[in-house]
Write a protein that binds this DNA or RNA. Sequence first.
RNA 1: GCCGACGUAGCUCAGCUGGUAGAGCAGCUGAUUCGUAAUCAGCAGGUCACCGGUUCGAAUCCGGUCGUCGGCUCCA
Length: 642
Amino acid sequence: MSEISVRLPDGKLLAVPAGTTVLAVAERIGPRLARAALAGRIDGRLVDLRAPLDRDVALEIVTARDPQAGEVIRHSAEHVMADAVKRLFPSAQIDVGRSDHGEKFQYDFLVERPFSPQDLERIEDEMRRILAEGAAFEREVVDRAEAKARFAELGEHLKVSRIDDIPAGDPITIYRHGSFQDLCRGPHVQRAGQIGAVKLIELAGAYWRGDERNPMLQRIYGTAFASAKELDEHLERLEEARRRDHRRVGQDLDLFHLDPLSPGSPFFHPKGVVLFNELVGYVRSLYPKYGFQEIITPQIFRSDLFKISGHYENFGDDMFRFEGDEDEELFLKPMNCPGHCVYYNTTKHSYRDLPLRFAEFTRLHRNERSGTLHGLSRVRSFAQDDAHVFCMPEQVESELRSFFAMLREIYHALGLDDVEVSVSTRPEKFIGNPEAWDHAEKLLIAAVEEAGYACGIKPGEAVFYAPKVECDFRDVMGRVWTLGTVQVDMSAPDRFGLSYVGSDGQEHRAAMLHRAILGSLERFIAIYLEHTGGDFPLWLSPVQVAVLPIAERHTEWGARVRDALAARGLRVRLDDRNEKLNFKIREAETHKIPVMAVVGDQEVTSGTVTPRRRRGGKEAAAALPLDAFVAELSAKVAERRP
RNA sequence: GCCGACGUAGCUCAGCUGGUAGAGCAGCUGAUUCGUAAUCAGCAGGUCACCGGUUCGAAUCCGGUCGUCGGCUCCA
């Protein structure tokens, strides 16, 4: 039998017979490693311990300490959960599990009646029992007919249909622990005991094969770790996410609320409006620099507009529709682009006028399905930092360059530095010709790379009328949100007959770009609140300064401090309540006010204030003349420094 | 829209298997005049989401509606 060579992480080469399993290699290295092994890794890909090696490879043995250990453990926990469900509910049919996203795993079941939260507890207990039994996971390669027959006999009809999804020629493997077996690619732990801690998190309905025309299965989500300590840390992170939830922060800081009388349409409170307006004002302040002109188009349009744009047939059900006089069909606009096209067409354009860049912040309304509404991040009424660029086709590249320059400037100012950019390519259903799509996609990819981003590709993810760039921001909790986007429209120029007169005196088709940098302001605020936890930089803070007199005799000076700050446009509150300084500080801290100005006897006599920064702690701050204090703060605000 | 859970004072929540609603914080009043994260006391505050049913009696049990939350689907 031929030998292969296995390179270990320390550089050592091990010669073993072809067909040696990963586990056997681990045993050659040492029995303790073999016992602790959860999986192997070849070229960054996890492989099962029982998988035979058939070529020269670089191999790492994955143990509980490995960053990828969780993936293996959770994958095996899926099987344990399915096993537990089958033990408690023998008539349940198993569909499939997943554990390749985040720190949770899931499994779907077809059951006569939905699981209850009590069932969840029972299932979790049963899982612990299975872990305690510590059965070994075994791997088996079977042929297709055998696999189908086996699951058919078990009454697992969903599973049989899943076998049909496996491409012909691919090996079919089954993993078994105890009396439970499941179709699975692996890899899996050696024995159930290696799953140190499990917790079932939640129940949900999920359509079979993700199609809403199919029956709904019951999905259980859980998480699993090598140790109880890691599980606790994970639960602590979930708790932290709950603390930062924008709905909670929005409530605590009195920024907005959602009222049952208008589901999905937020009320912004005065402080929320400050945040909203500061964001809009900032973007607006950059419009001259990047050559945008702001316009305001109608909120309501006749249906004809959306018939021209194509939204009528594609999104008609998701628009707010009503009737005007004489059965006139009207819609609340769900986006600005058609209106911008109408405006573009009000005059004949020369190539000398292009590019024309129209921006608009007015409100948009979409009748989102009730189940999809979520705080500020999914609403029915919102505004975007929306704009459309009308240009000659050969100007698209430089427009994309300008888009990324503006995007960088804004994200940097807001402290959104962890951004990944990708291009979504042509979906199955699309309009326009494929060559034009290919060309546009190439332009986008080149522009992303030129802007200095590694360009990811999201195959088939584009909108039906336009390839698009998506800018995904990773927040402090590690969650990814799509913010900015730019799209090359393959449809509107023709549908609206967007044209310009070229230097040759002939009419030419114009190119059109859609772009937004923050996207929906509502959604952006949600994301930003969770990212910052409500700790805004000075310039965005609804209340920038709290003036805190120590006793009543200091309020007069406090009022003059307040007035001096307010006169320079700073948002300031004088806390003249009859409370102790500690109380006022605590409240300013919990309200996330970035700067406090303490005034007592010393300050009154010397005409100063003693500043205290948010979370400044006990460090002794020096008193500052009022003028200097005001000048420092207004300079920071003007420069949008924290 | 679909599956499940939930809806009690402005906020956060308690109220065991049915017997006329309770706390903390916030608010109001008073006392205290205080130097870097909660001073003390008193007062007031609820058609228990809404509609209907069961019952001598419903916050509690049942049905419906609305909303919220977690998912699914969708996201121009």
